[in-house]
Each structure stands twice: as C-alpha cells, then as structure tokens.
Design a protein around this nucleic acid. Sequence first.
DNA 1: AACTATTCTATTTCGCACAACTTAATTTAA
DNA 2: TTAAATTAAGTTGTGCGAAATAGAATAGTT
Lengths: 150, 150
Amino acid sequence: MAEKIAIDATKPIPLDDHLCFSLYATSRAIQKLYHDGLSKNKLTYPQYLVLVSLYEYDHVTVKRLGELLSLDSGTLTPLLKRMEKEGLVTRQRSKDDERVVNVKLTDLGTSKRKDINELPEILVAKSNFTADEWNTLEDLSKKLFMNITK
Amino acid sequence: MAEKIAIDATKPIPLDDHLCFSLYATSRAIQKLYHDGLSKNKLTYPQYLVLVSLYEYDHVTVKRLGELLSLDSGTLTPLLKRMEKEGLVTRQRSKDDERVVNVKLTDLGTSKRKDINELPEILVAKSNFTADEWNTLEDLSKKLFMNITK
DNA sequence: AACTATTCTATTTCGCACAACTTAATTTAA
DNA sequence: TTAAATTAAGTTGTGCGAAATAGAATAGTT
C-alpha cells in the first residue's frame, strides 16, 4: 500500500517543500547553464528547442511545433519571425491549405546542429548524476507532465 | 560502478530525450494547473511564490527574496510594486540601511494564506503519484539544481 | 577625511509565455 | 450551396525573466 502524500495546509508550507518551485527553479537554472552556448549562436532557449525539433522532423507546421513544445501561436509566430530574420528558418504558407505555415531549416540553421547538440553534454557533466538518477528524473518529470496535462 | 549517461551528439537528438525540455514543459504545465486558483485571487505564479516566502519568513528584503526565488531585482521590483498596488504587501526602505527595502504582508496578503496553501493539493491530486515518486522527483530536482548552480 | 570597493535597489531593453481576440481559410452539414 | 462551425495563424496586452547599467548608501583603507 503506497503512502499518501502529506501536506498540512493549515500551517505555512516552506518554499522548499513546493515541488512546483523546485521544478521551476531547476528549469530556469538549466536555461542559464545553456545561456553562453546559446548566445554564442545568437539563440534563445526556446529558439534552441525549435531547432532541436527541426533537426528531428526536418519540416513542421506552426501548429505541430506548438504541439511538440506546448507553445501557442502567440509565442511561436513572433519567435519564428525572429528566427527567419536571423536566417535560421523559412516560413512558407502551404499551397494545399493556406491556413497552414510550414517551417523549414535553412543551411545556416542546419549548420548549427553540431554546436547545438553539444549543449546537453554540459548538463550531463554539471549534473554529476548517475545514469540511474538521470533516467529516474526524466521519467518522473515526463510522467508528471502526462498526468497533469491529460 | 555507475553507468555513464550516453548522448550521441553526432545524430539528431529527439526532443523527447532532452531532460531540460521535460523539466521546462512540466514546470509550465504546473503553472497552468495553478492558473485558475491564482487568477481567482488576482495572483500570478511568481507573485504566489512571493506570498509563500512571506508566509514562511514574515518579512524579507528584496535581496533575500531574490536569493530565495533566484530572481533578480529586474523581475522583483516591478512585481512587488504590482503586489503593493493590489494591497498584498508593503515596501519600506530600511532606516538602518537606506539601500535595503523590506517587504511585508498586509492583512489582505495574510488573509489569502488558506486559499494559497490549497494549491499544492491540486498538484498532488492530479499527479497521481505515490509518496515515493513525489519525494524522489523532488529530491532529484533539488539535487540537480544544487549541482548546476553551485 | 578622502578614496576605494562593495552592496543593494532600481531602471532599461529584449524576448518569451499566455490569455483573449481577430482574421482568413477550410470543412460540415442543412 | 451557402450558412455555420471549425481550424490555423496572427495580433494585442500584460507580466515575467535575464542581462546590463546606473546610482545611492555603506563599509573598509589609508
């Protein structure tokens, strides 16, 4: 029988006991960790995630990108316009369905793959995690995401 | 002997293999989960974290708040001004050291404690996690934060 | 006391995030 | 086949979040 998760809401709950805060702070810390490697390539963190997505899928629609990154068009449209301006991607309205905009890598965008792919190594090194710790954290984080978004 | 964490940077790394993304997406999903409960009280997520901090410490300086939440004054100053405007906190420059600004709860701010403290229950319920899963995720997230920020 | 360095807050600028809304294209169904 | 509903992207407004800078107050040194 699994133990219940106990939170006593009648007393002040220390910040340190908030799982939400731990994940929030850690996520931001990782973005800071990547900052130098990203700004060297004139990239922001969400722009980096767009490139990662495009290396995986070659071309995607704005809608698909939104599903992949759980970001909406209000975030993606201006972000992609900035990336287009930097010459990293192209945005083209689909001939089949004019509502759809296809996003593709340019040669410049493609050329950054090697640099980009080295960023996770920084986290691996700094984390000082065992493979088991790493995988457990990843699995639990994904499981939590699934459970609260489904 | 612990297994190494293996990342092959020569091939595209699926978005799904990025621990950074999993934590980033999960953190944002939690903020969305809290959104209704927060906006009911006219609060944003970081403002909620400020209140949590104040329930724990009663009064804090801007600097201390920045350390607690790992946020800088560029974020905190306007945020606290908005909270002051809403009547949730007071901001007062210290007599001892005029550089320091003390932040304290008002009665209104204090009165929100019960409502505020119920938010984590929403996450507990939605997570469907065992106490063991919950604690493991919290511990590993904190450990990762410590290792990459120290 | 004057000089220097440090500490702390505030300001500015830019780029997300997200909600709510608008516009335009496509699909559906009456 | 045209009116209604749906879908995709874009727009607007607000609030973070980070970096860089400025500026005032304090502490430390000579």
